[in-house]
Design a protein around this nucleic acid. Sequence first.
DNA 1: CTGCGGTTTTGATCTGCATCAAGGCGCAAG
DNA 2: CTTGCGCCTTGATGCAGATCAAAACCGCAG
Lengths: 248, 248
Amino acid sequence: MAHHDLNVVHQQCGDCPIRHRAVCARCESDELQRLEEIKYYRSFQAGQTVIWSGDRMDFVASVVTGIATLTQTMEDGRRQMVGLLLPSDFVGRPGRDKAAYDVTATTDLVMCCFRKKPFEEMMGSTPHIAQRLLEMTLDELDAAREWMLLLGRKTAREKIASLLAIIARRDASLKLKSQKSALVFDLPLTREEMADYLGLTLETVSRQISALKREGVIELQGKRHVTIPNLDRLMEEAGDDSDGGFLN
Amino acid sequence: MAHHDLNVVHQQCGDCPIRHRAVCARCESDELQRLEEIKYYRSFQAGQTVIWSGDRMDFVASVVTGIATLTQTMEDGRRQMVGLLLPSDFVGRPGRDKAAYDVTATTDLVMCCFRKKPFEEMMGSTPHIAQRLLEMTLDELDAAREWMLLLGRKTAREKIASLLAIIARRDASLKLKSQKSALVFDLPLTREEMADYLGLTLETVSRQISALKREGVIELQGKRHVTIPNLDRLMEEAGDDSDGGFLN
DNA sequence: CTGCGGTTTTGATCTGCATCAAGGCGCAAG
DNA sequence: CTTGCGCCTTGATGCAGATCAAAACCGCAG
């Protein structure tokens, strides 16, 4: 496994994250070539819908830059976000041809898409890809289940703290900054999107954020720019023993 | 794919469901042989814990008979069920050696286990297995996300109705009974377990079940035996457009 | 500068579910 | 038969978060 390590492979992979997810460039260069042939890029503006639940979906894709969300909606309009896609995350499922949720770009977004048919054929012939995808899907499943605990049992305050902790940690690991100094970031979501993610209303989100600010657990510059003076303190508020779910 | 069909293969597979999940007996008999060599059975009594979250887990397994639950627990004791394992469902994850949740037998339970190391090796050499496992994991992920909508946005009444509808449907498809007459079943969960699954308290579960009974949406014989006179009516109460989540 | 739409905050009130508490039912053991 | 123990139901009360309403903020186009 050693030289399948993501970071090592990354250097050779150029601009498309799926490659260092699905295959190793060093030992599978012919596969890489084939992936190259079936891939194409799509861009979306912030707010645009990538695909609606129930629509035909003839590709699988990974996020190159930007953020996308997966949401489910009831007929009366109640919404629940069920996933947050960050750069290098994967969408779509081999074996089904309808999208199961709405996929929306919350920021400007670039995705790297692969036509589904040939992608599936590749999976049949190259065990690496299915295995890597399985691993990723299991991670997502763990994250989803972590989120079920949050939705079912945590208080509003704990929910907010959990979300902030996850974003902070993901952000820190992404930037690979030297110190805890990395605990400064811009919220990639509006209050309403946070509410949809956490199973709350936007008013409750706003109030709880204000409360955390008032009590010094977080600091705010403007509406979106957050500083975490003490991550341990925040994690205490989150009531979380584990490693934070949506962290890869 | 035709002769990979689960029911067809089932006849040849004898007592262990993973075989017709992971491989096709007709075309992969040597793999079948290898699986045979690394498998063993374990039985548990109702209420027994199969494994605790965080424990070393050196096997993967599938349920042969009985029902098991996956639950997550916070330090202060709040519990959330994150999965329900029915016969033929799979637990465990290739690639991680710690259990991520508590696994508990809610009825008497028989599991078919495979030692993890050799199982993983097999996966590397036989694409079928990884692909089948990927498909199953994606189904579970969809189910988990469906559940997130329930936990985050549905009312207590809708939650109960959803759970009953899912059990009824799963049960009907399992029995393959001729008619809608199949909509009679015994609840496999206590009120408290339902509460843990739905993110409610057991009192609320009890009250909502009483209400549905009072209004004729369901009928009860004793505490556990349920009859659904009109599934469409129940599904309306569930506020559900989709196909019910935890249905395979 | 002004006005405007989208976002966020804050306040007042309402309500669904949790919490606390008591009692009932079925069953197994004494 | 009585006793005890799980499991379930029902009632009374409280509270976290939803809902309704208004105003402040912020960027931006005119």
